[in-house]
Nucleic acid binder design. Structure first.
Length: 596
RNA sequence: GGUCCUGUAGCUCAAUUGGAUAGAGCAACUGCCUUCUAAGCAGUAGGUUUCAGGUUCGAUUCCUGACAGGAUCACCA
């Protein structure tokens, strides 16, 4: 039983004995006491006045008195209006710290026997990744790590959109304009090479349209008639027919792209347990349409197209199979959903996909539930907002896209120049220095993208967004490096900061206690982040922790402290803070340096 | 037009899910390096939580209605 549960239980007991009233202990919620008042936890008595039949002050006082006499963890209390502020025994805090300090699995909740799939990244293979993908990848990776910490078995999946008209566009342009260019001959990363021809397609296609319009076609006609588009459509047909030349080019170009993505993923620090390819899955789902018809979940219209009626669920009718019997997007997603389940038998499945697909996933999940899938209630769309630039939306056609590779390189370069400016790389080898820049640059970027509530749109200003001070990744990393420095010194002069070193300690400074309070919240935050699929909870927590530590650091001296017990306790406290920061940052996919 | 999301300090974001006088960071200003890393700490200033109603002991949070921004509403993916 943790501290809050202990207090809740005693409050429950108080209600029973003082007011002869049963309250569920899970209904008793404690909140942190505001800084301006004395105490750590606050119990709000207003909701219970009907039970106590006394005014708020007296109610609070009665419960407070009960707590101080019946609980061995409560030290004292005060009542302000209807708020019962509870102070905890210093020895209880020391006990709590000891438990945390002993825990070899810090930040890991016990296995819960459940399996969850997290699908994220899911790129198109016709162009390189951009800033929006960074948010997706960092979110997906972090949520997967957070779920692992919550005791799930996690499968990270990537559904690669490797086929379709967009790839054919790159291929057509490549055929016409590349002169056999390759990543080797051009020095371009494979994904950037494919992207180059996707852009060229668009440019040349527009020229053709303009030309046709000049010669009297309407815009609509011109868009359909333009030779490049006709050729792309034809290429898609050939691809579906298995034409060896088309498939050959498709394979070649996709492999270039995968090589490029590998490099980018590696730099991002993300990974996957399972890849799915749409070229394998795009025909799936028709059997589910059959099943749905049999079960009466779907219905056929006169022209043989198949629909689902979701009006009872607040949506409308939605097509699931075309009149000509071919699939649409949702058909394929139904099939892929089922395929994933048959592969892994998960309890939950999380889709990390932008909020422009909210409606699509709403429909998909409602269909799977209507079909009575056992995992239906475990389907979750982790919908995140777009990343906007100061100039507005990113548009590839207008060249306002922030490329992922470029951005990451810039971040690392900025970290490097900033670090050099501060003159902090004395004694670093060149290799160590560049590793540090990487850690800091990527840490700044990841933290920036993860600290915001996923569902909110966010603004990214390339010049100003990434700071190294305040609520940033490097600030938290810095706090870790500071502590590492202390631990190095402690080791060097041989201070014992194991449990024995502070055995029998009974007194705490406020700054020490406040730090323990925050450290004690780690597990709660991990649970919350897992329930809400929200890395921002962890990010926010780590910032609070680092701030709290820095206050402690500024207020209390460690190596000038004459009391041996107190000294080793402070080092232990520092050590646990470092471990917590490291474990928490891991959940965000961020590394922490020992020196910076 | 229908549906969904968002609206909090000049800017970027929080607010323990309905709790106290709405908090951080950046930017501005004032202090603190002869002491464990100043990428830090302490402080000042900055608010009609878009607006108008409602629900109750209590609303940034829930409800209704405006206003603003965004997404979506294809036999596209």
């Amino acid at each position: 039983m943790n501290l809050e549960q202990k207090i809740s239980a005693t409050i429950q007991q108080a209600f029973k004995e003082l007011f002869d009233h049963q309250v569920g202990s899970d209904q008793i919620s404690l909140q942190p006491t505001n800084k301006e008042f004395e105490g750590t936890y606050t119990f709000v008595v207003f909701p219970y006045l009907r039970v106590t039949k006394l005014n708020p002050e007296i109610s609070g006082t009665k419960i407070g008195e009960y707590l101080t006499t019946h609980s061995d963890v409560v030290k004292s209390f005060n009542v302000v209006k209807g708020f019962l502020n509870i102070s905890i025994q210093e020895t209880s805090w020391i006990d709590i710290f000891t438990q945390l300090y002993k825990n070899p699995d810090l930040g890991k909740l016990p296995k819960n026997g459940q399996k969850v799939m997290v699908e994220y990244s899911s790129p198109n293979t016709n162009k390189p990744l951009h800033l929006g993908h960074l948010r997706n990848n960092f979110l997906g990776y972090s949520v997967a790590e957070i779920l692992k910490a919550n005791g799930y078995e996690v499968i990270k999946a990537n559904l690669v959109n490797d086929r379709g008209i967009h790839i054919c566009k790159s291929m057509v342009a490549y055929k016409h304009f590349a002169n056999g260019e390759t990543p080797e001959s051009s020095g371009l990363k494979g994904d950037h090479l494919a992207g180059k021809y996707y852009v060229i397609f668009d440019r040349e296609y527009k020229k053709q349209i303009a030309h046709l319009i000049e010669n009297g076609d309407t815009e609509e006609e011109a868009k359909k008639k333009a030779a490049l588009m006709v050729e792309a459509q034809e290429m898609l047909r050939l691809w579906e027919a298995g034409d060896s030349e088309v498939v050959g080019l498709w394979k070649t170009m996709n492999n270039w792209v995968y090589d490029g993505f590998d490099t980018t993923y590696k730099k991002m620090g993300v990974d996957f347990d399972k890849f799915y390819y749409e070229s394998d899955t795009y025909l799936l789902g028709k059997n589910i349409v059959e099943e749905g018809l049999k079960k009466g979940v779907f219905f056929k219209k006169e022209n043989e197209s198949v629909w689902v009626d979701l009006s009872e669920e607040g949506l409308d009718e939605k097509l699931v199979l075309r009149a000509d019997g071919t699939s649409v997007y949702i058909t394929q997603d139904m099939g892929t959903c089922e395929l994933k389940y048959s592969d892994f038998k998960f309890d939950k499945s999380v889709y990390v996909v932008g909020n422009e697909q909210d409606y699509h996933f709403d429909v998909l999940f409602k269909i799977m539930r209507k079909l009575g899938r056992p995992y239906g209630d475990g389907l979750y769309h982790l919908s995140y907002g777009m990343v906007d630039l100061p100039s507005g939306k990113m548009k590839s056609r207008e060249g306002t896209v922030v490329d992922a590779d470029d951005l990451m390189n810039e971040m690392v370069a900025t970290a490097a120049s900033h670090t050099k400016e501060l003159g902090k790389i004395d004694g670093f080898t060149a290799e160590e220095a560049s590793e540090l820049y990487e850690t800091l640059g990527m840490g700044a970027l990841k933290y920036f993208l993860l600290k915001v509530d996923p569902k909110k749109r966010m603004l990214f200003n390339p010049q100003e967004s990434i700071e190294f001070q305040g609520n940033t990744g490097p600030f938290i990393q810095y706090s870790h490096a500071r502590i590492s420095s202390i631990l190095r010194k402690a080791d060097q002069i041989g201070v014992d900061y194991s449990l024995k070193g502070f055995e029998g300690l009974a007194k705490l400074e406020d700054a020490e206690r406040d730090l323990i309070v925050v450290l004690n919240d780690f597990e709660k935050k991990i649970r919350q982040a897992g329930e809400e699929f929200s890395p921002s909870q962890i990010a926010q927590y780590l910032f609070d922790l680092a701030k709290e530590y820095n206050r402690f650091y500024a207020e209390l001296s460690i190596f000038n402290e004459s009391d041996q017990k107190v000294q080793s306790f402070r080092i232990s406290l520092s050590s646990l803070t470092a471990k917590t920061i490291k474990a928490g940052m891991r959940l965000l996919g961020i590394n922490v340096p020992d020196r910076m």
